[in-house]
Design a protein around this nucleic acid. Sequence first.
DNA 1: AACCGTTATATTTGTCAAGAAATAACGCTA
DNA 2: TAGCGTTATTTCTTGACAAATATAACGGTT
Lengths: 112, 112
Amino acid sequence: MNYKIKSRIWIEADNNVFLGEGRVRLLKAIETNGSLSKAAKSLEMSYKKAWTLLDAVNKSATKPVVITSIGGKNGGGAKLTPYGKSLITAFDTINKGCWKYLDKHLDTINSI
Amino acid sequence: MNYKIKSRIWIEADNNVFLGEGRVRLLKAIETNGSLSKAAKSLEMSYKKAWTLLDAVNKSATKPVVITSIGGKNGGGAKLTPYGKSLITAFDTINKGCWKYLDKHLDTINSI
DNA sequence: AACCGTTATATTTGTCAAGAAATAACGCTA
DNA sequence: TAGCGTTATTTCTTGACAAATATAACGGTT
């Protein structure tokens, strides 16, 4: 049997979790749907859970990541800032690089 | 403020977690103490939790990792096999390399 | 002013995992 | 055979986290 190496990476700010895989997934869904409630639905997650995650992201970020608005033509919405989009890209790049590194070193384990 | 990137890696066998940071810490304590109960005490962990962890490791390993014995001169004990020792070393090496990789790419985040 | 689809928030309920405690089994020693 | 220090296992409790529910607030539209 062969082993597999898995990993989780996350970004902390001031000892609080700022961005992780789940939060990035949520940000991507917000970008796609333009609204927090639709994003939550698309991820089969409760609105409250999504809201709590997003709140945590916004509270620990150094610059705005998502802009939300209440009321108006379509009831409101949520939109990523350019900073938010850059964060997603950077996170994904680093994460994929990490997987690649681990894949490269898997034989260290399997050949013991 | 600067962000930090953190990570967790673990090894899976057949879709079950086999080795992670906590289990490696336990294996190291077993190596040091020669007994599971003493290892648990040194990590301020209940004996049962330690036993459950070790049981999971032994069940998903392809070769014996720890040999335990009941009764006898000193009541029994737990001892790492050479395979177990090699696993610890390999895990630590890969883990440190992963941290190094992430450190190297942290500025990607901080410079956005 | 009533309505709609949002964001925002509090409260309650349910679930699951960690922890504690108790007990059995084992094999050497004296 | 009684005692000792282990490993091994079951049962019960507790506490934290997840989920569900309810409600308020907002600002355009009709």
